[in-house]
Design a protein around this nucleic acid. Structure first.
Lengths: 143, 143
DNA sequence: AGCCTTGTTGCAACACGTTGCGATAACCCG
DNA sequence: CGGGTTATCGCAACGTGTTGCAACAAGGCT
C-alpha cells in the first residue's frame, strides 16, 4: 500500500542503486514522525553509522524526493524541513515564535491557489508552501 | 519617501548609533530596486568599502528591519531576500523555475489569512509569506 | 575638549547545505 | 563467478548566515 514498498526495486527500475548508506537514511526516516530538519537527519544517520557524511544524506534525500517518499519545504530561518510520506497537496504552518508546525490541508489552500492561477497564471506548489505566523498558544501567552 | 527620513535620528532616538558601516548599507539599499539577496548586499557594500564584513551587514539589516526600512523573507533555496521600503502586508510569489518574483498584495492574501485566523487562531505573518510555484511564462514554455 | 557608557565592529568559529572530483562499489551481463 | 559501466561515496572547499567575544568608537555629559 505504501510508498515505502520495495524501495530498492524502485531505485533499480530507474537505473539507480541501493546502497548501505541509503538504507540508513531510510531507516532513520522510518523512525520519524512528522517533520525533521536536515541536521536532525544527519545526526540520526550518524547514530547508526558514525561515518555518515552530510553530502550523502542530502543527496539521498533528493533521490527519495524524486521517488515521492519525502518532500521538503523551508521552515524557520529558511532551514529545510523534510516531511515523510507526504499526502499530496499539503503545506505547512510554522509558528515563528515557538517553532511548532502543523499541516495545512489542500482544502484550506485551494481557494487561494485557484485565485492566483486564474488572476496571474501562477501555479502554486502547495507541497512546498510554508506559512509563517504566530500560533494561538503563543498569541495568548504574549497577550 | 519618509521611511528613509532622518535614519540617524531615528536610530539615536532608540539609543542606537549611526556609523559609517550603516551608512554604506543604506547607500546600497537606496540603489536597489525590488529585491536583493543577502549576498548581493554584502557584495554591494564591499564595492563601496572593501573592508565590509558579512556579520556587520546582516546585523545592520536586522536593525533596519526593526525600523521598518526593509523586510526580509525566504526565497528560492531558503535564501534570504530583502525588500526595500515595504508596503505593509504584502508577500511574495517566487517562480521555482526561473526564480523571478512578484509582490502579492494584501487583498489577495487576506481571505486566506483570515480563514486561518478564524479556524485555527493562527495569525499569518503576511510580510514574511513566500509562495513558490511556476509562473505563467515558465508554464507556457514547458507546455 | 575630554571622559564614560555601552552599542558596534571585526574576527574567528560554527551551523547548514551544496558542489566538484577522484576513488569505490553496485549492478548488469556473459 | 568475474569483468565493465557508471552511479554513488567521501572528502575538501565553498556559499550563506549566525554567534561569542575583545577591542573600538559614537554620542551624551560636564
Amino acid at each position: 500500500m505504501n510508498r515505502w514498498a520495495d524501495v530498492p526495486g524502485r531505485l533499480r527500475a530507474r537505473g539507480l542503486r541501493w546502497t548501505p548508506q541509503r538504507r540508513v537514511v531510510l531507516e532513520v526516516l522510518a523512525g520519524v514522525d512528522g517533520h525533521v530538519t536536515g541536521a536532525d537527519l544527519v545526526d540520526g544517520c550518524r547514530a547508526i553509522d558514525p561515518a555518515t557524511t552530510p553530502s550523502t544524506v542530502y543527496r539521498t534525500l533528493d533521490v527519495l524526493e524524486d521517488l515521492g517518499i519525502v518532500s521538503h519545504s523551508h521552515g524557520r530561518e529558511g532551514r529545510q524541513e523534510f516531511h515523510v510520506n507526504p499526502a499530496t497537496d499539503h503545506g505547512h504552518l510554522v509558528c515563528s515564535s515557538c517553532g511548532r508546525s502543523w499541516e495545512l490541508g489542500s482544502a484550506e489552500v485551494r481557494p487561494f491557489a485557484d485565485g492566483l492561477l486564474q488572476r496571474r497564471g501562477f501555479a502554486v506548489d502547495v507541497d512546498h508552501l510554508t506559512v509563517e505566523g504566530r500560533c494561538a498558544t503563543c498569541r495568548e501567552a504574549s497577550a
